[in-house]
Amino acid sequence: MGHGGESRRAQAYDGELGAAVARAQEGDEAAFAAAYRLVQPGLLAYVRGLVGDDAEDVTSDAWLEIARDLGRFKGDGAGFRGWTATIARHRALDHLRRQRVRPRPSALEQDVLELPGPQSTHDQAMEAMSTEHALALVGGLPRDQAEAVLLRVVVGLDGPAAARVLGKRPGAVRTAAYRGLKRLAKQLGIESVTDEAPRTLGEST
């Protein structure tokens, strides 16, 4: 239970990804495309959490760098996720620096308001949650928590790898991910261990 379903999924793909990366490093074009298809969805979701609507462009730039530097990379499938996430993150931060925009997407507030009301059952809220809603929720977290959650949940990195991407201590990143997830659970009306009554979204934010 310590790891989310997403990281388990990522681990299941890591063998395949590692093999594809190894072949791509020997010059196999099709293998590189396969690695791209395995990594890109999570990577794009992570970058979207950082830069919002420009995520496609930023991720595309990141892939140019990944394609260029692929020969330098050393590691397995999980390592490749971390490596690509690091490159994409640098691109995203460069992008934000250029734009002088805060990393949080500006369209968030609207989405938060549209979240299901208190009368909805939590599973309805969850099942009906769109990408925008989820993004809005994660974007509403403090920056370090949002990134830790995204790296873990979306990119599928374990604690040490996420810490390396963020350039922080593993303990700090683990704590940030835990707090972020707890907060999200609260916002979604999911009380994990506490006894208090489920709060509404309005109250919890």
């Binding site: 989310g4 791209y36 496609e56 989820a134």
Partner: peptide, 26 residues
């Protein structure tokens, strides 16, 4: 917690890969 993470992942990750972007990368 695992359910929440799975839900978030499912919500945030769009499976479709832009073919043009993939071609640029390749």
């Amino acid at each position: 917690a695992a359910g929440l993470e799975a839900l978030l992942a499912a919500s945030l990750i769009r499976d479709s890969v832009d073919a043009a972007a993939e071609q640029r990368a390749v």
